[in-house]
């Protein structure tokens, strides 16, 4: 993963960067599988490695393939480095990985694990938590996606689709239809 990130920073060809970030997502997904978070891994592989790569490539097709190289900006670099150091310092206070005494394992998690089978009756606790116990949050997530879709529609326009007549892109489709028509004739 580190190698991928370094390559992403080094490369200036944005198509390669998009490909590598898809690859990074795939690696992250395998990491989640190793951590037994199959649902998260699934999402990461489908969204991170799949859809977002296509959407990024679509964006590149609308803009440009090459990054504009500029001098390294000093102030943001220092700011980012300081934030990074602060965050790493913060992790020192976190409970050890897999510590059963850590707060996250003593709050609501045991109740979900013990009671969800009788309360919800689903073998997949992730789904129980996501859809039932935390249904309100998931409604918020769906609304976020809804808002994103509306935003894209507003920014990139809708009406152009309707006014546009099928262009040269549809040549293959037209051939198909002609061929089918020919067969029938």
């Amino acid at each position: 993963m580190a190698v991928t990130v370094l390559a992403i920073i080094r490369l200036h060809n944005l198509v390669a960067v998009v490909m590598l970030s898809g690859f990074y997502s795939l690696l992250a997904a395998t990491l989640f599988v190793v951590l037994d978070a199959v649902d998260v891994a699934f999402t990461e592989a489908a969204v991170g490695a799949g859809i977002s790569t296509i959407l990024m490539l679509g964006t590149l097709a609308l803009t440009t393939q090459h990054e504009k190289v500029r001098a390294l900006p000093r102030f943001p670099l220092i700011l980012v480095a300081l934030t990074g150091v602060a965050l790493i310092y913060g992790t020192a206070d976190m409970p050890d990985f897999g510590d059963p005494e850590s707060p996250i394992h003593e709050h609501v998690a045991p109740r979900y694990i013990e009671r969800s089978a009788e309360e919800i009756g689903l073998p997949n606790i992730v789904t129980s938590v996501l859809a039932s116990y935390r249904g309100y949050d998931t409604l918020g997530e769906v609304t976020v996606i809804f808002t994103a879709g509306i935003g894209i529609l507003t920014l990139l326009g809708v009406r152009r689709w309707r006014s546009r007549k099928p262009g040269p892109d549809t040549a293959t489709g037209d051939e198909d239809r002609n061929a089918a028509g020919g067969d029938r004739a």
């Binding site: 959407l55 679509g58 990139l156």
Partner: peptide, 8 residues
């Protein structure tokens, strides 16, 4: 989103 990007 795909339609909006690719349709342009």
């Amino acid at each position: 989103i795909y339609f909006a990007f690719a349709g342009r």
